[in-house]
């Protein structure tokens, strides 16, 4: 099943073209990794999937992105609803400077999903889903900024899944974390794919190989190759891909 289909996407920052003619199908309940050197357009591509690039002035997208068959860039399509369905976890953990509970309950409160004890349950579920519940259940009302960076990132994942999205986008979620915290987040990604479709941008090819089912390789604003992860890492179809994953380029 395809959750997202991207057709001939071009993306511009002012006059500069950051993504050219990109097409890709993203499978439901699978992990899709996007790899490539810095500035290759992989994060730009990711941020198109929930239209977060709209918050940057003077940018423009062409082409279409179908979420369950409906173009998210169609005129009149609602970005607020889109972002409820397509959540995001950022490169640096960015919990709000508020309590752990308030962080996780933020989305459900904003969207009016739950109140009172139902909200408490939702927070617990989300924290369990992010494998953080046992660590923080006794300090739900402490400032989230007191957590370690790795825990903060898992809190951000809990916050993202609390609004029950269908897709979770992760923009280099482990780049600020140490190896142990990275391990925790990777295990989490493994378990999350049962319920969510995950698209992850990563600098680490090892991470892509470990966590993903499909991998796309970007180079200078173009999607060079997209295939099953094991194929990309064992028998890449393009010379550029092979050079990059074997460390000869990039």
């Amino acid at each position: 099943m395809e959750k997202i289909v991207v057709n001939h996407l071009n993306f511009y920052y002012g006059d500069h073209i950051a993504l050219a003619d990109t097409s890709m199908s993203i499978a439901e309940h699978r992990v899709t990794a996007l790899i490539g050197p810095s500035g290759c357009g992989k994060s730009t591509f990711l941020r198109c999937l929930n239209r977060m690039n709209d918050t940057i002035r003077n940018t423009r997208a062409e082409g279409e992105i179908l979420l369950d068959g409906v173009n998210i860039y169609a005129p009149g399509s609602d970005v607020v609803t889109l972002r409820q369905r397509v959540g995001m976890v950022f490169q640096r953990p960015n919990p709000f400077p508020q309590s752990i509970f308030n962080n996780v309950s933020f989305g459900p409160r904003m969207l009016g999903l739950a109140k009172g004890s139902a909200l408490d349950d939702m927070v617990e579920q989300s924290l369990r889903g992010a494998a953080l519940w046992d660590k923080v259940k006794d300090k739900l009302h402490q400032d989230a900024l007191h957590l370690s960076l790795g825990q903060q990132q898992r809190l951000c994942i809990a916050r993202a899944i609390a609004v029950k999205p269908e897709v979770i986008l992760m923009d280099e979620p482990c780049s600020a974390l140490d190896p142990i915290a990275t391990g925790h987040v990777e295990e989490l990604i493994e378990s999350l794919q049962e319920h969510y479709t995950i698209v992850i941008v990563t600098h680490s090819m090892h991470q892509a190989a470990r966590v993903s089912n499909f991998t796309g390789f970007f180079w200078l604003g173009k999607l060079v190759e997209f295939d099953a992860t094991e194929k990309i890492f064992s028998r890449p179809g393009q010379k550029q891909t092979e050079d990059y994953i074997t460390g000869r380029a990039g």
Binding site: N50, R83, R109, M110
Partner: peptide, 24 residues
């Protein structure tokens, strides 16, 4: 990145201002 976090969850601009930016 606080604003981004709120917007990425489907908060409206006003919800982001009221519940994230102003408290911060």
């Amino acid at each position: 990145n606080y604003r981004d976090a709120a917007l990425a969850m489907g908060a409206t601009k006003w919800q982001t201002i009221r519940h994230v930016v102003l408290p911060a």
